[in-house]
Design a protein around this nucleic acid. Sequence first.
DNA 1: TATTGTTATACTCTATAACTATA
DNA 2: TATAGTTATAGAGTATAACAATA
Lengths: 163, 163
Amino acid sequence: MTATATQDQAAGVPDEVGSLELGQIGQSLGFLLRLSQIEIFEMFYRALSRYDMKPGEFSILYVIHLNPGVRQGALAERLMIKRAHMTKLIRLYEGRGLVARTIPEDNRRTVHLHLTDEGERFVSENARVFLGYIHQETDRLTPAEADELTRLLRKFLGLEGTP
Amino acid sequence: MTATATQDQAAGVPDEVGSLELGQIGQSLGFLLRLSQIEIFEMFYRALSRYDMKPGEFSILYVIHLNPGVRQGALAERLMIKRAHMTKLIRLYEGRGLVARTIPEDNRRTVHLHLTDEGERFVSENARVFLGYIHQETDRLTPAEADELTRLLRKFLGLEGTP
DNA sequence: TATTGTTATACTCTATAACTATA
DNA sequence: TATAGTTATAGAGTATAACAATA
């Protein structure tokens, strides 16, 4: 295929998408991750757009749900969201009545987060469809391959052995 | 670890990042891809920031280099970049003297792209360090695991068997 | 002096839709 | 009428730096 694509170009034949040569970029983890993420987002919106819930939004609320009282900075670090950005997001969820912020007496610099009753309701109402979707993400792979893919990504991220 | 994190929270013990419970989100391909991409970008800028070259920028020029005369829309589709966005990028590279646009006589709706001499020079000067970087992306994995990871991502993307 | 969160600002990427030229 | 590219506009996500409060 490599030779063909280049020959076609040399011969002035208009290429089509499928025959486009990617070279070593096609083996780049960064390139493949970018394409995969776009693909996942498109799948997500095809499947779940009617639920008016973004992946990032649900993720943050879900992790607060699993870790009531989590410190805002720790949440940001784990989710690789900058602290300044996390402030905006949390204030947004607070404004929507989903998250409550508390400042503990023993360290008044920190902010602890938990879900309001409405936030808990939001998570439990959406968890089934959202978490169910997670298992459909990898339709093109066998179950064993899907497991292996997540295992490798977790190892790449140094997430092995963590919850 | 699941029980511990929750217990700690219930006991009011401030959690730290490493003990944060991610639940099923930690198995989500979308979540892992997002974190992995951030990680790759950070590695990239740590390693290559002095070269004043962004991954996306090099990718586009490299693929034009491999497919001289490629139609702009085909390039956009393959790289999953919206046509409107690709127009801006190509105009930018054209303004920097790296890319030339030609409109073929037989179909004057289309734009064919190729690198200028300076564009070719840019790619050949940067290819070694950029493509060399690609092979360092997966330091935390064994070579076999890195191969398997890219293979699985390519299969997920339906890129198997394409160049 | 270091940590935690906040505010302000700006930039990149991307989406959408309307538009032009061409087929 | 459909296709390819362009233009204009807006929004999301994120980065940076300066700042305040607290330790």
